[in-house]
Simulated assay, not measured.
Amino acid sequence: MSSLFSKTISLGKQLKISDQDFAQLRDFIYSQSGIYIADNRKYLLENRLVSRLKELNLKTFSEYHYYLQYDPGRKRELNRLFEVITTNETSFYRNPPQLKVFQDYVLKDILDGLRKSRSKRLRIWSAGCSTGEEPYTIAIILHEVLRTELRSWDIKITANDLSEAVLATARRGYYSEYALRTTPKEIIGRYFEKEDKQYKLKSEVKRLVSFGQINLSDRLQLKRVERSQIVFCRNVIIYFDDDMKKSVINAFYDNLLPGGNLLIGHSESLHNISRTFKPKHYPGAIVYTKEG
């Protein structure tokens, strides 16, 4: 989830959202997802939801709010709502400096520690995985680092997102050239097969990743995620208010095993959000560590 409301829908200019309807829908979206929509985003919410009203043959935003609460199809529509209010723009090997720190320092230290303890059980959580580029990049890095040794490891990358639509795309594992725009050419050659105009991810990468829908505002769902040595949550918490940020970061802290690491987006910070993590500064990245 890298940018929210970055595009608008130019349909139904005659449909306008009142201040009251905006407040109701904003509060509903917040209660369901933790995503907070500021007052200055009102017209963007309006433009995004017009297509849903048209498809459902609803005449007002008030009717749509009622539909989301009481209609028998509300659960399916909630998934559609999540799709239209979030924009999932990402790519493989996004933010290379941070990934280099992950590979050369974070992952190396975790793997070395596991080897010393005679354990080869590695768990990584990608929270807000979008269409799969992030967790698959992590899986590729693991292949690159461990090579033939990977077969002897018990590795699972748990990848979650709010939108079922993006998860379906992720599970397929087919990507455009644009999704690979920041990926080294040799990596594309090793881990993808060209099919017409798309690139198919190889099965040995896909099998390391397990996808599932999760709502980061649901504490019970978060508690069910297997405890991890590493958590990635990049470009997600910027869409939450401070209370929601604190709740999610605390859930990551609880999930992480002692000595585990949290990686967030390069434009994000835990400043004034949490003091439980120890920040470690590297060239091009900050990694937040759970001491213990």
Rank of each mutant, 00 (worst) to 15 (best):
W125C: 06
Y93M: 15
R181Q: 10
G259F: 12
D218M: 02
F22Y: 15
K206E: 12
I35G: 06
K7S: 13
R171L: 00
S228R: 05
S130V: 00
V106F: 07
R41M: 14
L107W: 01
S31W: 02
L107F: 06
L263W: 00
T148E: 11
D218H: 10
D254A: 14
D104I: 03
D109T: 12
D196F: 08
L150W: 02
S117T: 09
N235R: 03
S2Y: 06
D242K: 06
E164M: 07
I29L: 12
L220E: 15
I264N: 06
D109C: 07
S10M: 12
D241H: 10
L107A: 03
E291F: 14
C233T: 05
E226L: 11
I124G: 09
H266W: 02
R224H: 08
R207A: 00
T137M: 11
R121M: 00
L167T: 10
V106L: 04
K54V: 12
Y253T: 03
Q32N: 13
A165P: 00
V50A: 06
L257K: 14
D241S: 07
S267W: 04
R76I: 13
G284S: 10
R121T: 14
I138F: 02
L150N: 07
Y178N: 06
S91V: 00
P96W: 05
E55L: 10
S126I: 05
R118S: 13
A127N: 06
F240T: 02
K120C: 02
G284E: 05
R52Y: 02
D154T: 11
L208F: 13
H281P: 00
K100H: 09
G34R: 09
S210G: 14
K100T: 08
L216A: 03
L150F: 06
S247K: 15
N261I: 01
I237P: 02
I155N: 07
E195A: 07
S228G: 07
G259L: 04
L78H: 11
E204N: 04
Y136H: 02
K16A: 15
Q69K: 11
R118W: 05
Y288H: 06
Y30W: 12
V231K: 08
S18G: 03
V145P: 11
Y30I: 03
S33M: 02
F22K: 12
Q20F: 12
D104E: 15
L263C: 01
R219I: 14
R94F: 01
K185R: 14
F277R: 00
T60L: 12
K206R: 14
L4N: 08
R76Q: 13
V106T: 15
L25M: 13
P258R: 11
G284F: 04
W125V: 11
F61A: 06
T183R: 11
L256W: 14
V236K: 01
Q229Y: 13
S269A: 01
L49R: 06
K245Y: 08
K7I: 04
L257P: 03
K245E: 07
D39V: 09
G259T: 10
Y36L: 02
A179F: 00
S117G: 08
L262N: 11
N79W: 01
D218E: 11
T87G: 13
R172G: 03
A168Y: 14
H281Y: 09
Q14F: 01
S10F: 06
A179S: 10
F82K: 08
Q198H: 12
G189C: 04
D19Q: 13
V225I: 15
N160I: 08
Q198P: 10
L78A: 10
L262S: 09
L11P: 01
Y191P: 06
T289W: 01
